[in-house]
Amino acid sequence: MTRKISFKTAINEALDLEMTRDPSVIMLGEDIVGGCGAPGEADAWGGVLGVTKGLYAKHGNRLLDTPLSESAYIGAAIGAAACGMRPVAELMFIDFVGVCFDQIFNQAAKFRYMFGGKARTPVVIRTMVGAGFRAAAQHSQMLTPLFTQLPGLKVICPSNAYDAKGLLIQAIRDDDPVIFCEHKNLYSAECDVPAESYTIPFGEANVVREGKDVTIVSYGLTVHRALDAATTLAQKDRIEADVIDLRTLSPIDWDTVLESVEKTGRLVVVDEANPRCSIATDVAAYVAQHAFGALKAAPQMVTAPHTPVPFSPSLEDLYIPTADAVVAAVGKTIARAKAA
């Protein structure tokens, strides 16, 4: 049965289904129950934005509110994973990774290799990413490139409720550590989602719009900006864009990207992360290296500027890549091609 539900509900549903299916799935995080030990309702919050609301009532003590000690509880989730559990730890905002990064990149990411293939660390770290919430520099970042840089981690960043559910179920069943990035400005976005359980394999990008003239690659919230841009381009300039939603950043689906660029000859990458050493530079470099002959113009990148995320709404709106910026970038690839 398929209904329209929000991204947030889809996440909740995925967690519920997996906790029901597999007793080794447990959840740890700050305020994921949201009220443990407090005089009022035990699960008053269900996550700071209510994403895990209702799960405590169904799964009880398999959800653990934690002290505000990211190193300790993210590390504990990793340790429990190495001992056969399938913990889903919530790092409230990806910006908080600074206080627990060692456990993620020196421990979880390296166990398997360092221990000669003997370890499995099936931990999922769910975390909120992205700007647009007026939450300023320490609660708004798109730090996906920090994680894609590291072998041993898988990095997922869905753009819609359907993908969120299928990818999260896949992440929980996956035997490697997964950083699961949820864009906070997508939580209320709805789409058709089956009620039952399903998985979406990692490393498969989604072509969300087909076109022959230009390839626009993105992930997360900016997929929607890319789609808006594609609509504008089609309506105004009769330029048809292939829009690719990467969905999973590590592993990444190079085949779909290359196939599209070979068809269109033009590449625009849209990434909410800062521009240096980002998903945008990674995709551009890969395409330049592997499909140079197919390119009719230099690849273009639309990213946040190389600044922290500003607070004032007027500035923050300038920070986030817009559909107009994507249209302009596409324009550059067409203009260049014409000039050539």
Partner: peptide, 16 residues
Amino acid sequence: AGAPLICGAALASRFR
């Protein structure tokens, strides 16, 4: 770095 990990191991033992 081992201290958080062992808390997780102990947590796993408790669940099991």
